[in-house]
């Protein structure tokens, strides 16, 4: 029986004909029949997804494909019209301690009068619970987290005196502080400098080596296969999901991006011909 379950784990995702366990507890993120609508307009439609443990997962798709919405729906930040998303077999409200969320950088006001250290320490608030204050211990851990993303020396800066890349690192350090099993990151690579990009990649790999699972919304198709070992192609529905090399095919991309990509490719081909 054990070998059976291991086997089914290795052939991820299970084929749809196989009976799916209602609450697969070994799956970091299992999404079933998820539909989300804003003002009656569907943004996600019937999403079916199983994310295997310890993988670096890239979520790729055109603008408006529902990538951020997918993360937010998993975190109960947006109501689901139908379906469910389970984290290690549990609904989100019972699995808060297992999940860390890195929102888009623009989602907060960086003029807010707090230091980098304050923001990172927020990652410890759930553990502290209501009323209890941040103590020395949490601040020391927050400094460690900042050190892991390479900006320990900026701990006492007000957040608006940080560059975009440094702000992104503060958010990542805050997620590290949560010490989660599953990390949901919304465009951490958006508009960051090369050094930050490298720091993020190193961080993601070290998380994955420790068996953590990371779901990362990503924009840059050129780096997708370098950074991620699992891919989810999304355009309102899941177009494809699987190991990066197998999933990152021309056909799948065409299905995800539709006409827009073919246009790009034609341009690229034309360019190639003209050079030849």
């Amino acid at each position: 029986m054990h070998s059976e379950s291991l086997k089914s784990q290795s052939t991820f995702p299970p084929k749809s004909t196989e009976p799916r366990p209602e609450h697969p507890p070994e799956v970091p993120l299992a999404i079933h029949d998820l539909t989300v609508a804003y003002h009656r307009k569907p943004v996600l439609w019937d999403v079916e997804l199983n994310i295997p443990e310890g993988k670096l997962v890239g979520i790729v798709g055109p603008n408006g494909a529902g990538k951020s919405t997918l993360l937010k729906a998993c975190l109960d930040l947006i109501p689901k019209t139908s379906g469910w998303a389970h984290i290690y077999g549990k609904p989100y409200r019972k699995a808060r301690h297992l999940v860390a969320y890195v929102p888009q950088r623009e989602s907060v006001d960086w003029d807010f009068p707090v230091t980098a250290l304050d923001v990172v320490a927020m990652g410890s608030y759930r553990r502290l619970g209501w009323f209890r204050r941040v103590s020395r211990k949490e601040n020391d851990r927050a400094r460690d987290a900042l050190d892991q993303v390479g900006i320990a020396h900026l701990a006492d800066r007000q957040i608006n005196q940080l560059s975009g890349g440094q702000q992104q690192r503060v958010f990542l350090a805050r997620a590290l502080m949560q010490d989660a099993e599953l990390y949901l990151m919304d465009e951490p690579f958006a508009a960051v400098d090369a050094a930050t990009e490298e720091a993020i990649v190193i961080l993601l790999r070290s998380l994955s080596e420790r068996g953590k699972t990371c779901l990362v919304v990503h924009h840059d198709l050129a780096t997708v296969t370098n950074y991620f070992d699992w891919l989810v192609l999304l355009n309102m529905r899941v177009v494809a999901s699987g190991p990066a090399e197998e999933t990152f095919t021309r056909e799948n991309l065409q299905k995800t991006y539709g006409g827009k990509l073919s246009l790009l490719e034609k341009a690229a081909e034309a360019l190639r011909h003209s050079i030849e």
Partner: peptide, 9 residues
């Protein structure tokens, strides 16, 4: 500062 984070925590 970050109401979404507050909710997720």
């Amino acid at each position: 500062f970050d109401p979404d984070l507050a909710d997720t925590l």
